[in-house]
Every structure is written in structure tokens, then in C-alpha cells.
């Protein structure tokens, strides 16, 4: 009996209203709490970083202070032409990603629509997916030398096979009733593909591309670290030679910021292109 009462007391304030508790199962938090929490975790991160460098808990040569990293980022951009490295990296990602998409998106949609096409390409594509793209770097360097080609090829290989599979699966998820509705309205194969399957799958294709773009950034850095004299990754490898850890961290910061920026751009593009999905009820 007393246990019941004390449990009641835990849940009720004097006015009889339920007390707000910090942890509630699946209760959404307010927008204000969300922003505060998000800013808070980063504030803690920078505070720990700042403290540990200034209190001398870590070797300053290996872990430079945050303001030092931002300082050298400014210096890199303002005085040492880092913008052109950033530009080259972005161009590589976009170029290779577009090439991969131009092949992967149509092929994935065709494979998801026509089982006969899937039967041809699926055994091939799924085998390639299990080969890590970086394992091709030595042979790519032998084939293409040291220019842009091996970097673009690495990104292309790293992205295309996963993108084909994601697009194919998304296409297979287009509901059978939509296709059958089109058929009973008198649609032929061409109309079914272009006027029903394609518009139905496009939002999911965009989501798949967004996921793979993040992957492209990963391969870009690998390519630039292993074999490049230009680009963000190459700058970081140069900095390593001179023990400039602040520049390495500045490079990481830029890659992170660019990844986030492209993700937000894709999300915005999704909202622009598919306004009808916003009204889901």
C-alpha cells in the first residue's frame, strides 16, 4: 500500500499534474530542447578539446588547440590557395558521382522493372559489390598513371555497384498495384516504365544517391591520400610531413563541413522536386 502511494507521489506534483521527467519513452521533445541539446553536445566536445590542450593533458604537437586549427584553416584559405584544393576535390566527387549515376540509375531502374534484365546483370553487380574499391588502386595507377583518371575511376568503382543495387531495390519496392492499375488503364510497357515506375521511384532514387554521395567523399579522401598532389587529402598528407597537425585537423574539418553541406543540398533538392511528399497524412 505504501509502495503504491510513494509511486503515485513520484508521478504527481501537488497540483495533481504529472511531473515532467527528463527521460520519457518515445515522447517527442520540444524544438527548444532539441536545439539546446544539439548545441550542448558540441559545446562539451570543444570544451573538452580546449581544456585538454590548454591544461597540458595531451601533447600539443599531436593535438593542437581548437583556435589554432581554425587559425590555420583561415591561413590556408586566405594565404595558401587552399580554396583551389577544395575546388579540385569537389570537382572530383561531383564528376565521378555524376558518371556513376548516369550509368547506375537507368540500369538499376531497368533491373528493378524487368526481371530479364536483372537476371543478366545481378550476378555480375553483386559480385563486384564485395570487392573493396581501394583494392583497385594499384592497378588503376598502372593503367591510368597519376592524372585525374585513376581518382575518378576509384570513385566510380566505389559508388556504381552499390548505387545500382540500391536503385534496383527501390524500383522493386514500387507497389505492384500501381503498375497493375496502369496496365488496366491501357498502358503499354513504355508508358508503365516512364509514366508510372519512374516517377514513383524517383524520390527513393534521390535518397539512394544522397547515401552514395557520402560514400564518394570517403573514396575521394582515400584516393587523394594515396596518390595525389592536389586536393584536400593531398594537403593533409603534405601537412603530415611537416608535423602540421593543425592543418590536418583543418582538412578533416573541411571534409566534414562539405559532406554536411552536400547532404543538406540533397535534402533541399528532395523537398523542391517532390513537394507532394510533404503533405503525407
Amino acid at each position: 500500500m505504501s509502495e503504491v502511494n510513494s509511486r503515485k507521489a513520484e508521478n504527481q506534483s501537488l497540483t495533481g499534474k504529472r511531473n515532467k521527467r527528463f527521460l520519457e519513452v518515445r515522447k517527442p521533445v520540444s524544438r527548444r530542447q532539441k536545439i539546446l541539446s544539439g548545441v550542448g553536445i558540441w559545446a562539451v566536445f570543444f570544451a573538452v578539446w580546449y581544456l585538454s590542450t590548454h591544461a597540458g593533458w595531451v601533447n600539443k604537437l599531436l593535438v593542437p588547440a581548437p583556435e589554432q586549427v581554425f587559425g590555420s584553416l583561415y591561413e590556408l584559405i586566405a594565404e595558401r590557395g587552399f580554396m583551389s584544393d577544395i575546388g579540385i576535390s569537389i570537382a572530383r566527387v561531383i564528376g565521378a558521382f555524376l558518371m556513376a549515376s548516369v550509368v547506375a540509375v537507368p540500369l538499376g531502374i531497368l533491373m528493378g522493372t524487368f526481371p530479364a534484365i536483372e537476371a543478366i546483370f545481378a550476378p555480375f553487380v553483386s559480385a563486384w559489390r564485395y570487392l573493396p574499391a581501394p583494392s583497385f588502386i594499384p592497378i588503376l595507377l598502372m593503367w591510368f598513371g597519376t592524372g585525374e583518371a585513376p581518382k575518378l575511376a576509384l570513385l566510380f568503382i566505389g559508388v556504381i555497384f552499390f548505387l545500382i543495387t540500391l536503385v534496383m531495390d527501390a524500383t522493386k519496392n514500387v507497389r505492384a498495384e500501381l503498375i497493375e492499375t496502369a496496365l488496366t488503364l491501357g498502358a503499354n510497357r513504355r508508358i508503365t516504365l516512364f509514366n508510372v515506375v519512374l516517377p514513383a521511384v524517383l524520390p527513393d532514387v534521390m535518397v539512394a544517391m544522397r547515401q552514395m554521395l557520402a560514400m564518394a567523399w570517403t573514396y575521394l579522401v582515400i584516393a587523394e591520400i594515396v596518390a595525389s598532389t592536389t586536393g584536400i587529402g593531398a594537403m593533409m598528407m603534405r601537412a603530415r610531413r611537416f608535423l602540421n597537425t593543425d592543418e590536418i585537423l583543418a582538412g578533416i574539418l573541411v571534409i566534414g563541413a562539405l559532406g554536411l553541406l552536400f547532404d543538406l543540398l540533397f535534402a533541399q533538392l528532395h523537398r523542391w522536386l517532390f513537394p507532394y511528399l510533404r503533405e503525407k497524412r
Binding site: 498495384e177 500501381l178 497493375e180 492499375t181 488496366t184 508510372v196 516517377p199 514513383a200 524517383l202 507532394y276
Partner: peptide, 19 residues
């Protein structure tokens, strides 16, 4: 023989083209 315009069908699941 096969689906055609002369025999239109309405399904239980929603089939509106959302776009």
C-alpha cells in the same frame, strides 16, 4: 488476353499516383 483499357480495375490498396 492480358490487361486492357476495356476492363478497368480498382484495388483495395490505394493506387493514386502521388506525383
Amino acid at each position: 488476353m492480358g490487361p486492357a483499357r476495356e476492363r478497368g480495375m480498382v484495388f483495395q490498396a490505394y493506387t493514386s499516383f502521388d506525383w
